[in-house]
Design a binder for these strands. Sequence first.
DNA 1: CTGGCTGCAAAACTTTTGCAGATTG
DNA 2: CAATCTGCAAAAGTTTTGCAGCCAG
Lengths: 145, 145
Amino acid sequence: MDWQTLLAKAGYRLSEPRKRIMKLMETAEKPLNPLAIHRILREQGIHLGVVSVYRTLELFFALGLISQVFQADGLVGYLPASFGHHHFIVCQKCQKAVEFSGSEDMRELVQRVQTETRYQVSDHLLQFYGLCPECQALLEAGGNS
Amino acid sequence: MDWQTLLAKAGYRLSEPRKRIMKLMETAEKPLNPLAIHRILREQGIHLGVVSVYRTLELFFALGLISQVFQADGLVGYLPASFGHHHFIVCQKCQKAVEFSGSEDMRELVQRVQTETRYQVSDHLLQFYGLCPECQALLEAGGNS
DNA sequence: CTGGCTGCAAAACTTTTGCAGATTG
DNA sequence: CAATCTGCAAAAGTTTTGCAGCCAG
């Protein structure tokens, strides 16, 4: 089911601002926060109220259309969410992020942590930080700055 | 090496506000953000400028004395950091958090992700959310609200 | 003593709220 | 058309900056 259908089924309208924001999110490679989205759209000549950006992101997030990503510097951004668990790896140089699949590998760890801490684990947050292929190549090519 | 020595070696002074804040952090069970720390200390009759709290936390974090914790609702708080990698499990009911050890179990996963994404992994963020023993007991006792 | 540190005030920035008017279904 | 949605304005909340005076080493 595409997001427009999902939105409609949940009783929401397909407005122009929502279309614009989703279109941007769909192509986003880096985590975007509300003000960044507002700024980028404005640079493209699309002027939305900041408030609408906040409200739209809140809605999309509640509907599970986008995920929150925690950046190494503590800021929080959004990225489009595919289904299932959402784990991202973020490039520390260019911020480009991609999703990777699978929390299957974590079952053992979850077991161990439950035994060790006596907490009952119900969810987890897992992100990796590193270098994307492009930035690795740049560094190897000698762009060592 | 204790934090006071570490602070001194790094060329910083051991001021009263810093002592107060570290004393609070050392006993913190839940992630605390700057304003919360300011509020708690004020409730204890200790009045610091909000600014000092921000600057002190920034310093402690830079020195690795405290860690950032990402809460399920997207807010960021601080907790004391023991050494090595800092992984926390946070209670979704009372926010109490404890550290758990070991990223050894993640080696395989890191390998797989590196192959899958072609990113070079250098760091990771791993947190669990769940129920602490106390909150589990409360729920079982019938406090099902 | 003296350079770093605190805390005030104020500015800058981010996020939320209330409401009139535009827009979607 | 009617209810939802947008966007402005303004408020509320958070974080940063500048600076005078204080204090740890």
